[in-house]
Nucleic acid binder design. Structure first.
Length: 427
RNA sequence: GGAGAGGUGGCAGAGUGGUUGAAUGUACCUGACUCGAAAUCAGGCGUAGGCGCAAGUCUAUCGAGGGUUCGAAUCCCUCCCUCUCCGCCA
């Protein structure tokens, strides 16, 4: 959520910056609503002040044992006009609030302005795709003989689910373990285990609501608040600081969590239908940081580097993209995507997204810290995938495939696989 | 599933219709005492918003929403959440 103060005072600049990401702010309508709000609020507060002072007068008179009838007559009219003013103000403020909830974050000055992913800028490219002197198969063809089973998953749940068997399931687990160990032991993150079902307030906090309700999976409970399957660990982890005032000496907070993620992928029909690139359920190791405002862009570089370290350790070729204004997520001020090389597609595909949200989420969550002056100030929040486990498995299958149909296990994963060096149909 | 208790300021904890934005304790800040610290004493200390150059002033806020009332933390209704005990269960 943007700072209403800023939106008010700098309406045209805000509108221009939002326009670069494709959000058209009706400044005239907003200015008009704002003016009306101001008028109504002043009016309402005057009436409230009047009510309060007469109530006190009446109370005092009663205490002295005087007749209060004439005083009561004086305020007879006040009630109804106050009720009317209050409800008019409430309606208007709801309208303004709804508008504010739906406005995306302002892009940082360093974000390239662009219309689509075509305008994303390649920041760096690491690793060289391996030369393969045989017909390169995609992860589906490589994986199916080794235990990747979409038919079984379809029977159980439908499209966009996966069953993994045997060493493939184990490799999947090894990947997650390796990522967690790296981030906790080498990058200083605290591991968390968190709920996979969260309430609406949490989804508002990180920005999934109110705009992206149709992307979520909801669980209804009779007589209880509905809960939502988390689309990413970002939601439960970031919301840990919701309504909290963090001590400055505890900053930065750095958390890592391995969770499944659930996405309905509404509107993605026909995209990546083959394989396990785009699933309703996938695992992800998520990095989250809460930092002081002046540190957040350094933190973004570091956090992105932590995700890159996994790709480097796995010796997977990738590139780092600075997303352009139009391609960034709703809540983000700046995002780097890490894209891994998929030889079958002869393309780099997203495997991690690292973002600085500045105070956008913190304002929604009222997540604050006490600054050096002892005043409460909004935190800056960041997160990034480190990495998407399912897609990492895809990348390993494709990049480590051999002519004979086996898959070599990357060196760093072997300790997690009791020394196994390759996956074949026979193991 | 059954029975009960409860949601008040950073924390603890009073308050059951009238100058209560809220006692008290604690934490924190400032000052006094001290060579310094501890202890003690005095003062300050929530959040959000409106108006104002400012000093200031006004409004809202005691889980959420609605109701009663001139006036609600306090009474009534609905909902949400937490805790305890019993049962069942991974």
């Amino acid at each position: 959520m943007l700072d209403m103060q800023l939106v008010r005072n700098d309406l045209d600049t805000v509108a221009q910056r939002l326009a670069t990401r494709g959000f058209m702010l009706d400044t005239q309508a907003l200015a008009q609503l704002e003016a009306e709000r101001k008028r109504l609020q002043t009016h309402t507060q005057q009436l409230q002040a009047q009510r309060n002072s007469s109530a006190k007068t009446i109370g005092a008179a009663k205490a002295r044992g005087e007749d209060v009838a004439p005083l009561l007559a004086e305020v007879a009219e006040l009630g109804s006009s106050l009720t009317a003013a209050e409800s008019a103000l409430a309606t208007l403020q709801e309208k303004l609030q709804a508008l504010l909830w739906q406005m995306p974050n302002l892009p940082h000055a360093s974000v390239p302005v662009g219309a689509s992913e075509e305008d994303n800028i390649e920041v760096s490219r690491v690793g060289t795709p391996r030369a393969m002197d045989f017909i390169v198969r995609d992860h589906v063809d490589v994986g199916q003989p080794l235990g990747l089973d979409f038919e079984a998953a379809a029977k159980l749940s439908g499209a966009r689910f996966t069953v993994l068997r045997g060493q493939l399931a184990r490799l999947h687990r090894a990947l997650a373990q390796f990522m967690l160990d790296t981030h906790t032991l080498q990058h200083g993150y605290t591991e968390l285990y968190v709920p996979y079902l969260v309430n609406d307030a949490s989804l508002y906090g990180t920005g999934q609501l109110p705009k992206f309700e149709e992307d979520q999976f909801y669980v209804q409970r009779a007589g209880m608040e509905r809960l939502c399957l988390i689309p990413t660990a970002e939601v439960p982890v970031t919301n840990l600081v919701r309504d909290e005032i963090v001590l400055r000496e505890h900053l930065p907070l750095k958390f890592v969590a391995h969770t499944p993620c659930f996405r309905s992928e509404a509107g993605a029909y026909g995209r990546d239908v083959r394989g396990m690139i785009r699933q309703h359920q996938f695992d992800k190791v998520e990095l989250v940081q809460m930092v002081e405002p002046q540190d957040s862009y350094d933190a973004l570089e570091q956090l992105t580097g932590h995700a890159e370290a996994i790709l480097q350790a796995l010796e997977l070729p990738y590139r780092k993209m600075a997303l352009c204004t139009r391609d960034m997520g709703f809540s983000s001020a700046k995002t780097y995507d890490l894209e891994v090389w998929l030889p079958a597609q002869q393309a780099y595909r997203e495997i991690s997204s690292c973002s600085n949200f500045e105070a956008f989420q913190a304002r929604r969550m009222q997540a604050r810290f006490r600054n050096a002056q002892g005043k409460t100030e909004l935190l800056h929040t960041l997160n990034g995938s480190g990495l998407a486990v399912g897609r990492t498995l895809v990348a390993v299958l494709e990049n480590y495939q051999q002519a004979d149909g086996s898959v070599t296990i990357p060196d760093v994963l072997r300790p997690y696989m009791t020394g196994l060096t390759q996956i074949t149909t026979s193991n």
